[in-house]
Amino acid sequence: MKKEVPLLITAIFGSFMVIDYFVPHPSVSAVGETLQQWAIIVISFSYVLGVANIARVNGEKISKRSRDWPFAIPLLMGLAFMLGVGIFGGIGERTLFNDFFLYAYTPMSGTMFSLLAFFIASAAFRSFRVRTLEAGLLAVAAVIVMLGRVPVGAEIWDKLPGIADWINNVPQMAAKRAILIGAALGAISTGLKIILGLERNYLGGE
């Protein structure tokens, strides 16, 4: 029963969401919308589990003085602080919670994102080393596309932007769409396997 009931729920609601896509009748779409709202509500309850996980993992780390335990202290303090100011001070504009989010979290998040520029450079350096025929083709295509995207490319040869566009719109797009079709079929068949109960590992133990 511990697996059959969840599998039945998955099958019923999974099938219903497929039907919802094809049936425009208001009664069906209203049920579909309601189910999606329930999903949001159920997911929001899971934050309690998330907070419990953080508290347990990092609390034990501090109490046992495990490796790198001092890092757990600011983490738990930050969690408690934001939780406190959010609950007691609100989360709207001109609140302490919002200020900390805008002036502490957002710049730190932007910093992490900006690392991408450096990582793109290091990854590109490695992948453009011409050691095989394929790597050579990749490097040549990349140089053409990069030059075709900047004004100096057109100055070197006026046909470069057109060639860059062709590479992007024809061979690149064909390969991308082939991968996309394969991935979409994989996703649909996985959905079917889950609705039919063939894939059930995600439900955990008996």
Binding site: I43, S46, L49, V51, N53, N201, Y202, G204, G205
Partner: peptide, 16 residues
């Protein structure tokens, strides 16, 4: 884990 809802799923899956 990046999503709180995935935590119990991951725990149960790994435990199993």
């Amino acid at each position: 884990v990046c999503r709180a809802f995935v935590v119990p799923l991951a725990e149960e899956t790994v435990k199993q």
